[in-house]
Design a binder for these strands. Structure first.
Length: 290
DNA sequence: CACTTGACCTGTCCGC
DNA sequence: TGCGGACAGGTCAAGT
C-alpha cells in the first residue's frame, strides 16, 4: 500500500490507540512476516509497554519500554489495524473490515492486556516486522542508506537538486522513486508531483533544469502534505490504524485517471510504463523531448 | 560502477 | 463461466 502519507497516517493513528498499552501475546504465521526467534519475543516483547510510535521513510518504528523497537514495513499491501476490546457493533461503517479480523490476510496478531488487538494484515506477504534493540535500528541497511525526509525543514530545494543530480543517467521518475535520493515517494506521488511540475517522467535527469527541479521539489511537498490531510490514498488495500480508507485518490490529478481529462488543460490522460512502473501523464502538459 | 530487470506473493480484472 | 496473462501503492538481488 503505502507511501509516506499513508504510513504517516497509520503512525498518527497508532499514537492515539496503542501508546501506553502493554503487550500480552503475539501470534504470527511465517518467519517471513516476523523473523525474530521466539526467545527474543518472550524476553523483549511480552510484557513490554508501547512508549512511542515514529516514522522514518515508509518504515514505522514502535518503541517499547524494553528499549526494543518493532520495525514495520507494510510494502504493497500491508495494514496495521487496531481493534478495541469492544468490537464495533453491526452497522458501524468499519464493521466489515474490523469485526472480521483476524482474516486470511492476517500475518501477525498482537494482543494487549486490555483485550484489544493490533493486526498486521498483508495479502501479498511482502511486508515484515522486526524486533530490534533501539540502538540497532539505525544500523539497519535500509535506515543507513535512506535519503532525507521530504517534509523536514532541512529538505530545501538545494538539497533536493543535489540529491537528484546523483542520478543523472536515469529518468526523473526513477530518480525520485529511489529511496536514497529522498524518502517516502512511491508511484502515486511521483506521478502526481511530476504532473504538478509539468515534467515528463521519462526525461533524463541531466535534461531537467534546476528551475524545473525547484518546481518539482515544491510540488512533491505539496502533494505529500495534501495527502496527509486527506488521510492518504486508498486505491485498493490501504486502510489506517482504525481500518478506515484515505481520500487523496479523489483529489489525484493523473494517478489512475487514464482516459479522463487533465484538470489543467482538458487533454486525455495517458497511461504508459516508465522506470518499470505504470505511469500517468498529460501528453500536453508533460512533454518528453525538450 | 550505474542502471534496469526480475523476483518476491496473492488477488483481481480483462480479453479470448 | 473458465483460463491465461497482465498488473497492483515497494524493495532487493541479480543481470547487463
Amino acid at each position: 500500500m503505502p507511501e509516506l502519507p499513508e504510513v504517516e497516517t497509520v503512525k498518527r493513528g497508532l499514537e492515539k490507540l496503542i501508546v501506553g498499552k502493554k503487550i500480552a501475546s503475539v501470534d504470527h504465521d511465517t518467519p517471513k512476516s516476523f523473523p525474530n526467534d521466539s526467545a527474543a519475543v518472550e524476553e523483549f516483547l511480552l510484557g513490554a509497554e508501547v512508549r512511542e510510535v515514529k516514522r522514518r521513510a515508509k518504515v514505522l518504528l514502535i518503541e517499547l519500554s524494553t528499549d526494543y523497537t518493532l520495525m514495520v514495513h507494510l510494502k504493497m499491501t500491508g495494514q496495521l489495524v487496531y481493534v478495541g476490546k469492544e468490537r464495533f457493533g453491526a452497522g458501524h461503517p468499519n464493521d466489515s473490515l474490523v469485526s472480521n479480523l483476524p482474516d486470511r490476510s492476517t500475518r501477525v496478531t498482537f494482543g494487549f492486556e486490555d483485550e484489544s488487538h493490533l493486526y498486521f494484515n498483508d495479502q501479498r506477504k511482502f511486508g515484515w516486522i522486526k524486533l530490534l534493540p533501539n540502538d540497532l535500528v539505525s544500523e539497519d541497511p535500509f535506515m543507513q542508506k535512506v535519503g532525507p525526509e521530504p517534509l523536514h525543514d532541512s529538505f530545501t530545494a538545494d538539497v533536493f537538486i543535489e540529491q537528484v543530480r546523483r542520478r543523472k543517467g536515469t529518468s526523473i521518475k526513477a530518480a525520485i522513486l529511489d529511496q536514497t535520493v529522498l524518502a517516502g515517494i512511491g508511484n502515486i506521488y511521483a506521478d502526481e508531483g511530476l504532473w504538478g511540475a509539468q515534467i515528463h517522467p521519462a526525461r533524463r535527469v541531466a535534461d531537467v533544469s534546476d528551475a524545473e527541479l525547484e518546481k518539482l521539489h515544491e510540488e512533491l511537498i505539496y502533494v505529500l502534505n495534501l495527502s496527509i490531510e486527506k488521510g492518504g490514498s486508498t486505491d485498493k488495500n490501504y486502510v489506517n490504524a482504525e481500518g478506515k480508507r484515505g481520500s487523496y485518490i479523489d483529489f489525484a490529478r493523473v494517478f489512475r485517471r487514464e482516459g479522463k481529462e487533465c484538470p489543467r488543460c482538458g487533454t486525455i490522460i495517458e497511461k504508459t510504463k516508465v522506470a518499470g512502473r505504470g505511469t500517468h501523464t498529460c501528453p500536453t502538459c508533460q512533454i518528453l523531448t525538450n
